Amino acid sequence: MAAFNQYLKALRERKFLDIGTVAERTGVHRNTQSKYEDSRDPPLDYLVEFAALVDVPFIDILLKRLDDSKASQRAVNLAISSLEPEKSGVYEVKEIYKTSNELMHVKLNEVSHKLIPTGATVFINTSSKAIDANSMYAFLNPMNGEHFAAKLVLTATKLKLVFDNTERKDLVFSVEGGETESRYILKTLGLLGKIVKAELIF
Rank of each mutant, 00 (worst) to 15 (best):
S34Y: 07
T155G: 11
N77H: 12
A79Y: 00
L63D: 08
L17R: 13
F202V: 09
K194G: 02
D170I: 06
V54E: 10
R25G: 03
Y97A: 09
L47A: 11
S39I: 13
F139W: 01
V172T: 13
L152K: 07
I61S: 09
E49F: 08
I80P: 00
V76Q: 08
E199M: 06
E167T: 03
K70F: 03
N77Y: 03
L192Q: 13
L17V: 09
S112M: 03
K15T: 04
N134C: 07
A198T: 11
Y46F: 13
L47V: 06
S82A: 08
G193E: 04
L17Q: 01
G177R: 15
E13V: 06
T180P: 01
Y46S: 04
Y7C: 09
M143L: 14
A138D: 04
D67W: 00
E86W: 06
T126V: 12
V28D: 02
L62C: 10
I116A: 10
S128N: 14
K87C: 11
V106F: 01
T32M: 09
F50I: 01
F50K: 10
L83E: 03
T21Q: 14
V106Q: 05
L115D: 14
V196S: 10
P142F: 05
E24A: 14
L192H: 05
R12F: 00
R168M: 11
V22A: 07
F123G: 06
T188D: 02
A75Q: 07
L8S: 05
A138K: 03
N125E: 12
T26F: 01
T99P: 09
K187Y: 02
A133M: 15
V162A: 10
G119C: 08
M1S: 14
F139H: 00
V106T: 05
I80G: 02
G119Y: 01
H113R: 07
T32E: 07
N125D: 15
A79F: 00
K194C: 05
A138F: 04
I185N: 02
E110M: 10
A71E: 15
F148G: 04
S174G: 12
E167Q: 13
F139R: 01
Q73E: 08
P43K: 04
E84W: 03
I131E: 01
E146K: 12
D132I: 11
T118Y: 01
T26L: 01
E86H: 12
N109I: 06
F16L: 11
L78K: 10
R65V: 00
E176Y: 11
K129H: 06
L200R: 14
N31S: 07
F123E: 03
D38I: 04
N101H: 10
Y7A: 08
E95D: 15
A71Q: 13
E199P: 06
E146C: 13
L140N: 09
I61W: 00
L152H: 04
L47Q: 04
K70D: 12
L78N: 12
V28Y: 00
L62W: 02
Y46T: 03
L53S: 05
V93W: 03
G190P: 05
I124N: 11
N125W: 06
H147D: 10
M104C: 07
N141G: 05
F16S: 12
E110K: 15
D170Y: 04
N5P: 09
D60C: 08
H105C: 10
S174I: 08
D68F: 00
I19A: 13
E199G: 01
L140A: 14
L8Q: 15
